[in-house]
Nucleic acid binder design. Structure first.
Length: 278
DNA sequence: CTTTACGCCTGACGGC
DNA sequence: TGCCGTCAGGCGTAAA
């Protein structure tokens, strides 16, 4: 479900609604595995204060006094803060934390592609699934045209598949990959190694632009993404190509095409996006 | 090493 | 109304 803007929106929402450092008074584990086993030491969170929320790529990180809880939303994961007097149980609730004041912070994930893990405070890099992550796309020093250009050398996969690879750059998923390539004017099927330096610069610029704008609008709700407050994002109305096959291109007379690339639905304009790129 | 095919799950939707 | 196939924004693994 969520890509970087949606995860960032959830992070900001949690910061807003949780207030200052609530104590975790109880942890209820309702299921022992999501896409991998739940950590056995989740109970160790009891007594700690929830201090800080961070994001690394599509991962959410919850810092307490002693631990960092690592969370990935997968496709359908979401958090909600249930009021103290009236918490309802929903189908697919998997972890519930009772906070000081009585509110319940609940993780729900229908498809169970999400992940919850627990490490010592700040020690998330000890997890193999985090150590290979590429740079943050909004880190101006790390994610540059030169960086992307050099990474593409010798790589034959379509450029769209390439920018969705979390080892190359984190946070870009299926929606924003199509959107960024449209904005960059680059065809999604272009083999990565055929990209030129100027094309790499264009992609970096477009990725940053579309992610930044999507964050400003609270992410995109296509099917079931929702904020912790339950409301939808707003950027779906500003998507230029995603889920718009057959509709008019926003910048030429043509129509948007749909094609499966690397097993994923891909949307682009044949006129505005070229395989031969300067 | 890179690339591709497939599996993991549930739910929503469209066609019949 | 129901059944059945397909698809969904994620990632990991096996095999070539």
């Amino acid at each position: 479900m969520p890509e970087l803007p949606e995860v960032e929106s959830v992070k900001r929402e949690l910061e807003r609604i949780l207030g200052r450092a609530p104590v975790i008074e109880k942890v209820l584990l309702k299921r022992k595995d999501l896409r991998r086993p739940m950590p056995t030491n989740l109970e160790g969170l009891v007594g700690s204060k929830l201090r800080k929320f961070r994001r690394r790529g599509k991962f959410l990180l919850f810092d307490t006094d002693r631990h960092t809880l690592i969370n990935h939303l997968g496709m359908t994961g979401w958090w909600r803060l249930s009021p103290s007097n009236n918490h309802e149980n929903l189908k697919h609730d998997h972890v519930e934390m009772v906070l000081s004041g009585g509110k319940h912070l609940i993780f729900n994930d229908a498809r169970r592609f999400g992940l919850i893990d627990l490490v010592s405070l700040g020690d998330e890099k000890s997890k193999t699934y985090m150590e290979s992550l590429g740079p943050e796309p909004l880190d101006l020093n790390a994610f540059t045209g030169d960086y992307l250009f050099h990474k593409t050398r010798e790589r034959k996969v379509p450029i769209k598949t390439f920018i969705m690879d979390q080892k190359i750059v984190v946070g870009v998923g299926n929606i924003y990959a199509s959107e960024a390539l449209f904005r960059a004017g680059i065809h999604p099927l272009l083999p990565a190694h055929r990209l030129k330096n100027s094309g790499a610069e264009q992609i970096v610029r477009a990725v940053r632009e579309v992610l930044t704008m999507a964050i400003e609008h609270g992410g995109s709700t296509i099917r079931d993404f929702k904020h912790s407050g339950g409301e939808a994002g707003g950027f779906q109305e500003r998507l230029h190509v995603y889920d718009r096959q057959g509709k008019a291109c926003v910048q030429c007379d043509g129509v948007i095409f749909h094609q499966v690339v690397g097993g994923r639905s891909t949307y682009f304009c044949k006129h505005c996006q070229r395989k031969t790129h300067r």
